[in-house]
Amino acid sequence: MKAILTDVTKCIGCQQCVLACKDYNKLDKDMPRDWHRNDGLSARNWTSIIHKPDEHYIRKQCRHCIEPACVSACPVAALSKSPEGPVTYDPGRCIGCRYCMIACPYGIPRYEWDNPVPYIQKCNMCYSRIKEGKQPACTEACPTEATIFGDRDELLAEAHRRIKNDPDLYIGKVFGEFEIGGTQVLYISDIDLGFLSYPVRKDTPVLPETTAPAMSAVPPAFFGMGAVMGGLYWFCKRKERIKREKEENKE
């Protein structure tokens, strides 16, 4: 499982990653739109730098969840989790329902609202490059190695090592290690990164598991309702017949 580790303390906000992403994925010119959210991401910007007070730059991109809500939500499996880890999107399957945008806890998928043939747009961790054995365009472009690419386990170890070496600087936690089932884009930071996702409570379950019981109850509910109705039908018919027989007997 491949992963990206972003060290917020090292980022200088130069946006080389944004540029590399735009170039590699051939994303079109962008301009401020009414439908953008104020985090810099859009259908034509798959990664962005969020600036927080005191020279903190946080790169926002798809988190490539280990148990992605978008993948479990998509009715046609246009979004899928590849074996290497990235969550990829197949526009040929998409029907444009935007349920993935509802489901994503990080608010990542964006939509081409101005296109009469609109598709979902999101970071795919440069999946074609990963398959070639290369690293994503953004991590390759980073001049300060603030964002690096590697195996998830190794990066986790590296993250914990950095935190251990400098416990005063970092918040003692790797963002993305456990929340909502864990992600493959990890952060270590000296400020809290809670703003990257919707408010997550401690007991927030892994999202695909929320719908799983209801979905597995589908066949029993279907046939159960059929059986109940069948029983009711038989009962009512019988009642009717008994009533009719009684009347006949009276006569």
Partner: peptide, 16 residues
Amino acid sequence: FFGLGSVSNLSDATPW
């Protein structure tokens, strides 16, 4: 003919 953005106020924040 002109996409969802031409008539609606739907946005990345409010997709439905």
